[in-house]
C-alpha cells in the first residue's frame, strides 16, 4: 500500500477513535430552555445541566435559606452535575479541587462547598438548611465502584452569566490519571 495512503488511514482512524472516546452531546430542555452537555470517556459519564438562577433561588428558599443568602449562589453559574462509573477499569476516585473551569481569562477549580459554607455562616442558618445546602452539592471527594456508582449534585463555577468555559474533570483509577472535558459550556443568563 502506498505509504501516503497508509499514513492517511492511520490518521483518520486516530481521529475517529478520539472523537468516539470524547463525543459530546448537547440538549436543550424544551420547557425551560436549560441546556445540558454530556460526554463519555474511559468508561465514565460526565454531564452538566444548567440550573437557572430562579430555580436555584427556589430550591434553597424552600429549604429555609433566606433570600439574601441564596442570591450569590443563584448567580454563581450553577449546574446539576453527574459523574458515573459505567465501565471504568476500577474504582474512580476524584477530588473536585483537581478539576478546572477554564474560561478565556482564567483557569480555576469550581467553587468549593467549604467556601460556600463559610459565606453562609453570617446568616445564622438553621441546622436543617445548612445540611440541605451541604448535601445538595456535588461531593467534594468521592470514589465510585465500577458498575454504576454515581452522584448527582449542584456545582458552581463562580462565573458570570453567559460566560463560556470548558470543564476539565480529573480522576484516577488504580493510580492512573484520567480526564474528561466538556467544551464550550455556557452559564445560564
Amino acid at each position: 500500500m502506498n505509504p501516503t495512503i497508509r499514513i492517511g488511514i492511520v490518521l483518520l482512524s486516530m481521529l475517529l477513535t478520539s472523537s468516539t472516546v470524547s463525543a459530546q452531546s448537547k440538549t436543550v430542555d424544551p420547557t425551560t430552555g436549560a441546556v445540558s452537555w454530556e460526554t463519555q470517556m474511559h468508561g465514565v459519564t460526565l454531564s452538566l445541566t444548567q440550573i437557572l438562577p430562579d430555580q436555584a433561588r427556589a430550591f434553597y428558599l424552600n429549604r429555609g435559606l433566606p433570600a439574601v443568602a441564596t442570591e450569590p449562589y443563584a448567580k454563581a453559574c450553577v449546574y446539576m452535575t453527574i459523574l458515573r462509573n459505567d465501565s471504568a477499569p476500577g474504582v474512580v476516585h476524584f477530588q473536585l479541587e483537581d478539576w478546572s473551569v477554564v474560561s478565556t481569562d482564567q483557569s480555576r477549580p469550581p467553587v468549593s462547598v467549604e467556601a460556600w459554607l463559610k459565606r453562609l455562616e453570617e446568616y445564622d442558618l438553621t441546622q436543617a438548611a445548612t445540611i440541605a445546602f451541604r448535601w445538595a452539592q456535588f461531593p467534594p471527594e468521592q470514589a465510585y465502584q465500577p458498575g454504576g456508582d454515581w452522584n448527582q449534585g449542584m456545582l458552581t463555577t463562580g462565573l458570570e452569566a453567559d460566560t463560556v468555559f470548558d470543564l476539565v474533570a480529573r480522576w484516577d483509577v488504580a493510580g492512573e490519571s484520567y480526564q474528561g472535558i466538556l467544551r464550550n459550556v455556557r452559564c445560564a443568563s
Binding site: 430555580q55 427556589a58 430550591f59 424552600n62 446539576m80
Partner: peptide, 8 residues
C-alpha cells in the same frame, strides 16, 4: 418559586 421547585 413554584416552577423552580417542580422543575429541579
Amino acid at each position: 418559586l413554584l416552577l423552580g421547585v417542580w422543575l429541579l
